[in-house]
């Protein structure tokens, strides 16, 4: 099988749904969690350590019969900043979307400040993105800025 055919197979193996490509291998499970794919009832195919010209090794997720909201997709930009979303309809690529880091981040990230109210009360977190490259975010509550992102469990 040629490389081209192999690639096509990876992308188009589902009739309808979404393919999330170019995920760093160590972020695949995170992406699944962020998008709630673990609760999806239909078929989900996960590929790890696939060859990628750009990134060496990559992960890929294919979710059958599922389309995502753009705001949901941007959440994964924190874990997989170079991910591409491919919308599949009738085995054809209907749309390709590059994820973008959102201006605000809710719930999925944890504040690094142990004395922050968000780490001491049952509540959702909220951050504003100050810089996108390299990523720098500020806690809406304690106002601390941080560059390393920790996801909520």
């Amino acid at each position: 099988m040629t490389t081209k055919n192999k690639k096509e197979l990876i992308v188009s193996a589902i009739e309808n749904g979404t393919v999330i490509d170019h995920i760093p291998v160590n972020a695949v499970l995170k992406v699944i969690k962020i998008l709630g794919i673990d609760a999806h009832q239909d078929e989900v195919l996960i590929g790890m350590n696939l060859e990628s010209k750009k990134y060496g090794r990559k992960g890929i997720i294919k979710v059958r019969n599922k389309y995502f909201e753009k705001s949901d997709l941007n959440k994964i930009a924190l874990a997989a900043p170079h991910a591409t979303l491919i919308v599949i309809k009738d085995y054809e690529v209907a749309e390709k979307i590059a994820v973008q880091i959102p201006n605000t981040i809710e719930k999925i990230v944890k504040c690094i400040n142990p004395n922050c109210i968000t780490n001491n009360e049952e509540m959702d977190t909220k951050f504003s993105v100050i810089e996108k490259e390299p990523l720098k975010i500020q806690c809406h509550y304690c106002e601390k800025t941080m560059t390393n992102i920790r996801f909520t469990e």
Binding site: N113, N115, C116, I117, N120
Partner: peptide, 8 residues
């Protein structure tokens, strides 16, 4: 005593 308590 917790940072961010007032905003919340």
């Amino acid at each position: 005593n917790k940072e961010g308590a007032a905003r919340y």
